[in-house]
């Protein structure tokens, strides 16, 4: 569903992503790991069509994102890091705006899509509240609601559980799991337990390069008895 081939992105002289390739199929939840600054966000921004890759291609559902960015954006749900939203809008207004941009123009269609997203993310109680008054956990859920409002075939989530308390993390994970059945999901994180909890595959990148692409079980098998974060440390340190 999502296919990434030799993506390269440079910021001036600094190379952020140096030739990353992988693919995500329907039903997969891909955990995207790496130290801060490894190029996770940059890769996701290129898939979502926010940044133009310097080299390589990313495609969603067979459509190349540089060739037809709007078509890709139509199919994709994207949650940017820190779940940005317009603070002065209420949850309902904000999701209504997203629905309109996503092509649900009639009042009925808009309403049903917004209700769907609100129900999925359990935001119904705060629908009339302005986003700036919400707690971090609720804001994150608004970002989620925005990403899945059009029931996309592919989801790209940049640190979806960042800044949430343990209960909220669990809720979000359950949500992702429940949606993944018929979707392709990529989520970036630096919480390793998350990978164990929900991911069907793991990718680790460091310094813009892909160093691991396997299942969580295979990752574990690399060093039996060791904790995941120790394995992660060994892997990302040795390649640096």
């Amino acid at each position: 569903m999502i296919e990434v081939n030799g993506l390269v992105k440079n910021y001036g002289a600094k190379c952020a992503v140096a030739g990353v390739s992988f693919r995500v199929n329907r039903g997969d939840i891909l955990g995207f790991l790496g130290p801060n600054g490894a190029g996770k966000s940059t890769t996701m921004k290129m898939i979502a069509g926010y940044l133009r890759p310097d080299e390589g291609t990313a495609s969603v559902g067979g459509i190349d994102v540089t060739a037809d960015p709007v078509a890709v954006k139509r199919q994709l749900g994207y949650l940017p890091e820190n779940a940005p939203a317009y603070p002065e809008m209420t949850v309902e207004e904000f999701l209504g705006f997203i629905a309109e941009v996503r092509g649900y123009r009639s009042t009925a269609a808009k309403r049903s899509q917004v209700d769907f997203a609100l129900a999925r993310t359990q935001l119904d109680a705060v629908r009339k509240q302005t986003i700036e008054t919400l707690s971090k956990g609720y804001k994150q859920r608004v970002g989620f609601a925005q990403a899945l409002l059009h029931d996309p075939v592919a989801l790209v989530l940049d640190e979806p559980t960042d800044g949430l308390d343990p209960n909220q993390k669990n809720e979000v994970r359950a949500l992702i799991k429940s949606m993944a059945v018929e979707k392709a999901v990529i989520l970036s994180t630096h919480i390793l337990e998350e990978v164990d909890a929900i991911c069907t595959r793991v990718i680790i990148i460091a310094q813009g390069r892909l160093i691991v692409d396997e299942t969580p079980a295979q990752l574990r098998a690399r060093a039996p008895g060791m904790r995941l974060d120790e394995i992660f440390r060994d892997l990302t340190r040795s390649k640096v």
Binding site: G49, Y50, A71, K73, R74, P80, A85, I98, V101, R102
Partner: peptide, 10 residues
């Protein structure tokens, strides 16, 4: 950061 949201909409 809403620019990122805006430009990843279709």
């Amino acid at each position: 950061g809403t620019a990122e949201l805006l430009f990843t909409l279709p």
